[in-house]
């Protein structure tokens, strides 16, 4: 028995074991526990691409208090964050940096496009320095229209995102 076949043999078994683990975790009550914990630990990245950050601040403020949903106050480190809120216009200059920020976040990661500019370019859709299609940079989970959206509207998007997380598979 050569070295390679031994490794193949072991590889097959390891693969089968991990598949088994995935099926166990990804089904039944464990799935709900995992999704529940993800729902209550949506930590937002604070990259303010444009002016919608004023309403993001209002949502983080005392009136709505998103810590009720397990959204901790803004964390500076990207490696702890799960939720990227694209707060407004994405210019061509910012798009590169936004992509870098997205790639640095750990999986599973979720994106909310906040405001008209992040959804479609909005008021500035015909400008020379705007990225209209943010969804081509990375997949977007929830779109919130509004210019800027009310903080309640942003929170309703987070509620919608939690609903999506609750239903999703653990290993997508």
């Amino acid at each position: 028995m050569s070295q390679d076949t031994l490794q193949d043999f072991a590889g097959v078994w390891i693969g089968k074991m991990s598949e088994l683990v995935q099926t166990i975790i990804g089904s039944g009550p464990i799935k709900y526990i995992v999704n529940w914990s993800r729902m209550y630990a949506l930590w937002p990245v604070h990259i303010t691409t444009a002016c919608c950050s004023a309403e993001f601040g209002a949502m983080m403020g005392p009136r709505l208090d998103p810590e009720r949903f397990g959204m901790q106050a803004v964390a500076g480190g990207l490696r702890q964050c799960d939720l990227l809120i694209v707060e407004g216009t994405v210019t061509k200059k910012m798009a590169k940096r936004l992509k870098i920020v997205y790639e640095q976040m750990p999986k599973p990661r979720y994106v909310i496009a906040m405001g008209d500019c992040a959804c479609s370019g909005g008021l500035f859709h015909d400008s020379y320095s705007i990225v209209n299609d943010v969804h081509k940079l990375f997949p977007i989970d929830v779109y919130v229209p509004g210019c800027p959206p009310r903080p309640e509207a942003l929170l309703s998007a987070i509620v919608k995102l939690r609903e999506k997380i609750r239903r999703q598979e653990v290993f997508a």
Binding site: K92, K93, D126, S127, Y128, S129
Partner: peptide, 18 residues
Amino acid sequence: TLDNWEGPPPMLKDIKFP
């Protein structure tokens, strides 16, 4: 504008939007 902005200065009237 972008760090490596190419092309004519954007505020000239020649630059037309789609």
